[in-house]
Amino acid sequence: MSVHPPLDPAHDVEQPAYRGRWTRRVVAVVGADRLAAVGAVVLLLIVAAAVLAPWLAPYPDDARSATHSLEALQGPSAEHWFGTDRVGRDVLSRVLFGARTSLTIAAAVLAIAAVVGVFLGVVAGYAGGWLRDVIMRVTDVFLAFPALLLSTALALILGPSVTTAIIAIAATWWPWYTRLSASMASTIRGRAYVDAARCLGVSRGRIVARHVLPNSLTPVLVQLSLDAGGVILTAASLSYLGLGAQDPTAEWGLMVQQGQSLFSTAWWVAAFPGLAILVTAFCFNVLGEGLRDALDPRRGNR
């Protein structure tokens, strides 16, 4: 699994007056990019389906511990659109509730990674000196390990659960945001408006809060959208290996694992959750590419 590298900070530094045009540019550029627009619409539908899962699922109880042995491994039909699994649970209901689990994991991981990474990166980039060296060396240690391998090792130590998956993945994802934010903050620190604020006697904390931090967030927002698909894939991988969500929790990776041995006779058990992972990750990627174009200052005059 590939992880998107941090964006190039040299092209993403934003002036304060530029922030007011974010919304217009995002709407205009993403709207002009048909693939990004389709990705955004599909993601909205997936999020809506996850939120409304208790009302949309034809068999809400099947997402939990209900079993119907007489209906096991029935193919797609008018009664069960996505068929049933080996214990008779409705696959469509579990896919809808699995969206809740997968998106919750992704949101939690990215929130933790962004908060920790941006905080450390801004501190390192603006303070400089030995503090930057210490933070960046610790960051480099985490980046030296493959993300999935380190997440798997942490999940083995902590024990399998959704909470474990969130902690294990977040522990490997924050360094990307630290490095990205540090590069941005270091560049912004030398800008004329920051120098002017220092000459006026503005405190360091106020400069960071008013100028450095807001202007460091543009590439972070793009990186979040690009990373969401990767987090969902990593969470699914951990569940597939038995280190993430556990039955009867509905989670896409776990559902794929439960259906892999049945693929030749009951393909729908693994195919539909696998398709959900593929579509969601793809839509996050194309939306992220669209946002990167929309927030690129080089497109400012277009």
Rank of each mutant, 00 (worst) to 15 (best):
residue 133 D to C: 04
residue 121 G to D: 01
residue 104 T to Y: 12
residue 166 I to M: 14
residue 99 A to C: 09
residue 128 G to S: 09
residue 170 A to S: 09
residue 101 T to S: 10
residue 185 A to S: 11
residue 137 R to V: 08
residue 132 R to I: 01
residue 123 V to Y: 00
residue 127 A to G: 00
residue 168 A to T: 07
residue 175 P to T: 01
residue 163 T to N: 13
residue 157 I to A: 15
residue 110 L to A: 07
residue 156 L to E: 12
residue 126 Y to R: 09
residue 155 A to R: 08
residue 102 S to K: 09
residue 114 A to I: 07
residue 106 A to L: 11
residue 147 A to I: 05
residue 110 L to E: 04
residue 170 A to F: 01
residue 136 M to Y: 04
residue 139 T to L: 01
residue 146 P to T: 10
residue 126 Y to G: 08
residue 155 A to W: 06
residue 182 A to Q: 06
residue 129 G to D: 08
residue 154 L to H: 14
residue 168 A to G: 05
residue 192 A to N: 15
residue 183 S to W: 02
residue 139 T to W: 01
residue 139 T to E: 10
residue 132 R to M: 08
residue 161 S to H: 04
residue 188 I to Q: 05
residue 117 G to S: 02
residue 129 G to N: 15
residue 128 G to L: 03
residue 134 V to Y: 09
residue 191 R to F: 03
residue 171 A to Q: 08
residue 173 W to P: 01
residue 191 R to P: 09
residue 164 T to D: 12
residue 109 V to D: 01
residue 105 I to V: 14
residue 156 L to M: 15
residue 193 Y to T: 07
residue 128 G to C: 08
residue 150 L to I: 14
residue 165 A to F: 03
residue 129 G to K: 12
residue 179 R to K: 11
residue 169 I to P: 00
residue 104 T to H: 07
residue 144 A to L: 11
residue 133 D to H: 15
residue 131 L to W: 03
residue 112 I to K: 08
residue 154 L to W: 11
residue 138 V to A: 14
residue 139 T to P: 01
residue 132 R to L: 04
residue 190 G to Y: 07
residue 138 V to E: 05
residue 154 L to S: 09
residue 147 A to Y: 04
residue 101 T to L: 12
residue 176 W to E: 07
residue 159 G to D: 12
residue 176 W to P: 03
residue 142 F to R: 10
residue 174 W to P: 06
residue 154 L to R: 05
residue 132 R to N: 13
residue 148 L to A: 15
residue 167 I to P: 06
residue 122 V to Y: 02
residue 182 A to K: 01
residue 107 A to L: 11
residue 107 A to M: 10
residue 100 R to I: 12
residue 100 R to H: 14
residue 120 L to E: 01
residue 127 A to Q: 10
residue 184 M to R: 13
residue 120 L to Q: 02
residue 118 V to Y: 00
residue 192 A to W: 10
residue 189 R to I: 05
residue 109 V to F: 00
residue 111 A to K: 05
residue 171 A to W: 03
residue 186 S to K: 06
residue 155 A to G: 14
residue 190 G to S: 13
residue 94 R to H: 13
residue 170 A to T: 05
residue 138 V to P: 08
residue 155 A to F: 05
residue 158 L to R: 10
residue 94 R to M: 12
residue 136 M to R: 04
residue 122 V to R: 04
residue 183 S to H: 09
residue 109 V to S: 05
residue 112 I to A: 15
residue 166 I to H: 08
residue 136 M to I: 06
residue 179 R to N: 02
residue 115 V to M: 06
residue 165 A to L: 07
residue 136 M to G: 07
residue 112 I to F: 11
residue 190 G to T: 12
residue 191 R to Q: 10
residue 103 L to K: 07
residue 146 P to D: 13
residue 94 R to F: 08
residue 193 Y to A: 05
residue 183 S to I: 03
residue 128 G to Y: 03
residue 124 A to Q: 02
residue 148 L to S: 15
residue 107 A to H: 10
residue 161 S to P: 02
